[in-house]
Structure formats: C-alpha cells, structure tokens
C-alpha cells in the first residue's frame, strides 16, 4: 500500500517534535529526581551533623562534669579530711630536717640542720676526748 507523501512528511515531523519534547520532559524529570535525591541526602547529612553536634556538646559537658568532680575530690580540704580519717596529716618539713646539698653532695653552708649536726659532732668529739684523756667512758659517766 502506497503511503501519501504529505502524510509521511507530517508524521516524520510529529515524531521528531515528540522526540524533542519527550527529551526535554525526560531531562526535567531527571533533574527533579536528582534534586529530590540531593535534598534527601542533604537533610540526612544535616540530621547526622546535628546529632553529632549534640553528642559533642553532651560529651563536652560530661567532660566538664568529670573534671569538676575530680577537681572537687582533690581539693585540699577534701584531701585533708580523707587523710585525717585515716589518722594522717601533711606538713612541710622543719628547716632542721632539711639538708640542701650541692652537685657534689656536700651540704650547703648556712643551714640549721647542718649547724645542728656539727654541734652533735662536736659534742661526740668532746666525749671521745674526755674518755681518752681521763680514761672515763662517756657511757660509764652517763650511768
């Protein structure tokens, strides 16, 4: 069966038109789909970021609380109370109990503790001298 040339021409024009319109609509459709997918991904990411931010704030607050509890526990008043409960107390040593030494291990001059030791040493030497000269033992003398 022969086809009318005019009809054929018209049909081919319609087909080409429909292809271009269809293409445009398909493009629009795809854009809409991608937009939707992107939006949904964005909102998901936003939610997860917000969750993480909330967690971060909570963790920071928790850290602050823990640090505060630790600092409160090691406050000097609390420490002293804890020590007292166990029958202990802390104090800085008396100068008579401290001997400061130089790098070679010799005691630095001008210390009460050193003067005290020197006086003891002198007393010991005197006692030795007494015992050697007089023949009397300091121990015996004490008795």
């Amino acid at each position: 069966m022969r086809t009318n040339r005019r009809v054929h021409k018209k049909m081919s024009r319609v087909v080409s038109h429909s292809m271009s319109v269809g293409g445009v609509i398909l493009l629009l459709f795809l854009m809409v789909i991608f937009n939707l997918m992107g939006t949904s991904q964005c909102s998901q990411l936003m939610k997860s970021i917000n969750d993480k931010e909330r967690q971060l704030v909570m963790c920071k607050a928790e850290l602050e609380r823990s640090v505060a509890q630790w600092e409160s526990a090691k406050a000097s008043g609390n420490l002293e109370r804890s020590l007292l409960k166990r029958g202990m107390a802390m104090n800085y040593p008396n100068p008579r109990q401290i001997i400061r030494m130089d790098g070679k291990g010799n005691p630095l001059p001008g210390q009460t503790s050193v003067a005290l030791l020197q006086r003891r040493a002198n007393a010991f030497r005197t006692a030795q001298y007494d015992s050697s000269v007089r023949g009397v033992s300091s121990r015996r003398r004490v008795r």
Binding site: Y92, P93, N94, P95, R96, I98, R100, L108, G110, Q111, T112, V114, A115, L116, R119, R120, A123
Partner: peptide, 23 residues
C-alpha cells in the same frame, strides 16, 4: 615560718634557735 618552709628559703640565721634544742 610556714611560708619560709613552703618556699624552701635557706635560713639566713642558722645558728639562732639552736639553744633551745636538746642534745
């Protein structure tokens, strides 16, 4: 006295105060 002990200041009159000690 407590502050000097805490700061670890070397005594400048070490001989003073020894008279009351018992040997």
């Amino acid at each position: 006295e407590r502050t000097m002990r805490y700061l670890g200041v070397t005594p400048d009159c070490p001989q003073e105060g020894l008279d009351d000690l018992e040997f």
